[in-house]
Write a protein that binds this DNA or RNA. Sequence first.
DNA 1: CCAGTTAGTTAGCGTTGCTAACGAATATGC
DNA 2: GCATATTCGTTAGCAACGCTAACTAACTGG
Lengths: 156, 156
Amino acid sequence: MTDARQAAPESAAAEGRSPARVADTLHRSAIQLLRRLRQEDRRSGLSGPRASALSVVVFGGPQTLGALAAAEQVRPPTMSRLVRAMESEGLLLREGDAKDARVVRVRATAKGIRILQAARARRLARLQVALESLPSGELATLDEAAALLERVARTL
Amino acid sequence: MTDARQAAPESAAAEGRSPARVADTLHRSAIQLLRRLRQEDRRSGLSGPRASALSVVVFGGPQTLGALAAAEQVRPPTMSRLVRAMESEGLLLREGDAKDARVVRVRATAKGIRILQAARARRLARLQVALESLPSGELATLDEAAALLERVARTL
DNA sequence: CCAGTTAGTTAGCGTTGCTAACGAATATGC
DNA sequence: GCATATTCGTTAGCAACGCTAACTAACTGG
């Protein structure tokens, strides 16, 4: 099945580096990472779906409701209800579009931005502490890999 | 606040490699990666919570209901209902403990294992395809980083 | 101007999360 | 050994989230 031995690559043994194996380890470690960081979200007052949707609006700028639903991989009725609930909590607001009266544009409020950033800061702080205890070489590897991974994820 | 300039590290510029920045990029890329891979789960017939719980039982072996709830970061009543539903679908079975009659031990059935592995294979296949188009140096970086990340995640 | 398409909502259902309260079994203390 | 406390899991009941089906309103193309 595997063609790992053909034309041995330039350097350090390629046996552990088949795309299949890397995919597996990457997948498992990403799941594990986010699972642990999710513990920090309890005290944010934001549910998972709300934090995720709010994040898209805060970092991606104002969005139509449909675009937001697509980004969150959720159907329009689900996002419609989510947006209404979050609007009533003052996290975001819905505004009409000047060109097309059908669309609803969603924008984060100052409060929404503040709350999301606080939740995000808690997650990142926890991860940062763990990274601080790594030797600089390992940190460099993670830095390169993270940038790479971001690019790979966009092409998925 | 940052002490990035003190005692300049051995090699290539450390400016982008503060733990804070790496944490941020890692976090974002992990979210993006799993968000995309989640699209594959639609055709597995397993909901997110079910796939996740089943995965813990398949890879971690038989578990008590409470341990499973803790692993999934969910309260016992939630896991109790989830397990009952999955048992009725033939994905796993509940068996009593010989030593302690209070505990319920949960084990995956052959069907459960098969279905989980199929879902997992779909996710991994998609990621693998993306990785195959990377130059081997980048793949090596991801390989090292994935192993590192797995270790970091365990200490979180 | 009329048919078709698109954006979003409403209605109604199943699943998944919780807390509170309980039953049963085990552990502890006197 | 027996009363009490603790632990494990379940039941009941609620809120949040996911879906599809069906609808209204608005835009588009002839």
